[in-house]
């Protein structure tokens, strides 16, 4: 498997940031960065990462299945993550999530047919004081009302 030159550079730098013999440390970041490019953790990617870090594939599987941001199936181009944890819930995040389901026609962890959007109800994302909060891919949006949510989605649709 080959990655883009930029990613290869990033991975080389990543692996170099751990002491010699401790390259396995790069596993989680490596999966995160490669997932961003490949779209999800495919079986080939597991093999590739195992090969590069010189570890048995089962050790990669162990890790992939543990972390909630690592996905076996591709998410949408825009992965909408709505926090419904306690601080956001107190600002009606549950209703926001329901609204998002309606708006996108998707449920938890579902991907739209055209692959543009996916929706996920997530745990606290560290935006509790500016609740309710969502993340579109890695971008934060704070104080999200249903109206604001619609605007965000509509503007993403326009970008396409």
């Amino acid at each position: 498997m080959t990655f883009s030159p930029e990613l290869e550079k990033k991975l080389a730098k990543l692996i170099a940031s751990y002491p010699p013999g401790k390259e396995k440390s790069a596993l989680v970041p490596m999966l995160m960065f490669t997932q961003d490019e490949v779209g999800c953790i495919t079986p080939e990617l597991v093999q590739e990462v195992a090969k590069r870090l010189n570890i048995p594939p089962v050790q990669v599987d162990e890790v992939v299945s543990y972390y909630s941001m690592l996905h076996r199936k591709p998410m949408g181009k825009y992965h909408i993550q709505i926090c419904t944890n306690i601080s956001c819930l107190l600002w009606d995040a549950d209703k926001l999530f329901e609204h998002a389901c309606q708006k996108l026609g998707l449920g938890h962890k579902q991907v739209s047919a055209d692959g543009q959007f996916s929706l996920e109800e997530v745990e606290c994302i560290g935006a509790c004081s500016w609740a309710p909060a969502i993340q579109v891919n890695y971008d934060f949006h704070h104080h999200v009302t249903p109206e604001k949510f619609d605007q965000i989605i509509d503007s993403l649709k326009k970008v396409q």
Partner: peptide, 10 residues
């Protein structure tokens, strides 16, 4: 920083 209610380190 993952404790629900916490967003200071950020």
């Amino acid at each position: 920083e993952s404790e629900p209610g916490t967003c200071k380190d950020r």
